[in-house]
Amino acid sequence: MRDTSSPHPTSAASAGPGPIVVLEDFTVRYGKFTAVDRASFSMPPGACGLLGQNGAGKSSILKAVLGLIRPAGGTARVVGFDAVRQGIELRDHVGYMPEKEAYMPGLSGLDSVILAGRLSGLPKGVAKQRAHEVLWLVGLDEARYRDVAGYSLGMKQKVKLAMALVHDADLLFLDEPTNGLDPEGRVEILTLLKDLVRVKKKSLILSSHILADVEALCEHAVLIDHGRIVAQGTIEELTRGALRSYDVRIDGDLQAFTEKLRSSGILVETAAPAASASSTDPALAASVEVRLADEQTTAIVFEIARAVGARLRRFEPKRRTMSDVFLETVAANAPSGGRS
């Protein structure tokens, strides 16, 4: 049998700030169906979100990152390993936390994590010691000696995270880590992940439908749609507005201000009528979103406010959320006549 105790090749995670995942023209086909179409992206160390609708190709990317798939074309390099040729070695240095409920039946939390460590090549004694440490880290104290089948969902998530961490993974792949958790459990897991990234300098890829989680945790994101990478970059770059949109709040006659803006050819969006009517927040009631065309300067908004006798209380460039980015990108890349 083959010995997988070969020395760790140059690992991006430990070697420096180079990309931790690099896919180049990566193509995956199942029969005639192309699941991933010449995907190219590189992910620097840190936290990266992987976003896409169901069936967009996220799972295929995940399998590529784990070295479980033989591509029809292209290359994938993950933490310094060739994911196609060195899948086994790669998985010794990558941690994976599945979305679905998954546990080792009949084993305690401790035994599950020990087994996970040993399967990743840790000697028995080391696996035992590290299992205790990692379970303590994720917040499973005495419960570690109980059968995992009797754990709450949040505790099961913690065991899965401990299993992903125990072998000193350079990169964690987390598939919907907060799925099904109550708000308290979600905050707990997110705080733990933030600590891992920011304090322990771990790298992770987060696949989640909860875009607020991605925004809160990740510095980078990759958007995939119909098997193609449609956007990638830092969260800062992706959420920067394409249009020059501003949040404007005034003290004064909002209706007159709005009409004057529109008559000057400026796009204005007020808060939803129902929301503004029922709102007791005067700030919301007096807020509008103003979109300026390229030739229009911000000075015109100030002039109009002065003209209607209103005082500007707030004038801020509006940022898009990841949700906006996701929906706009998917809509822009939808095939004609297809989904929008």
């Binding site: 049998m1 083959r2 010995d3 997988t4 105790s5 010794d92 040993r118 990743s120 090549g121 840790l122 000697p123 080391v126 590290r130 440490e133 990692v134 303590w136 880290l137 994720v138 917040g139 961490l165 072998h167 000193d168 707990e188 705080t191 733990l192 600590d195 891992l196 304090v199 322990k200 771990k202």
Partner: peptide, 18 residues
């Protein structure tokens, strides 16, 4: 919520078993 302590997540540079 447990915080991360230094001994809670050490690196492992030893050999891996076969």
């Amino acid at each position: 919520m447990t915080t991360i302590h230094d001994f809670g997540l050490r690196g492992y540079d030893g050999d891996r078993v076969g």
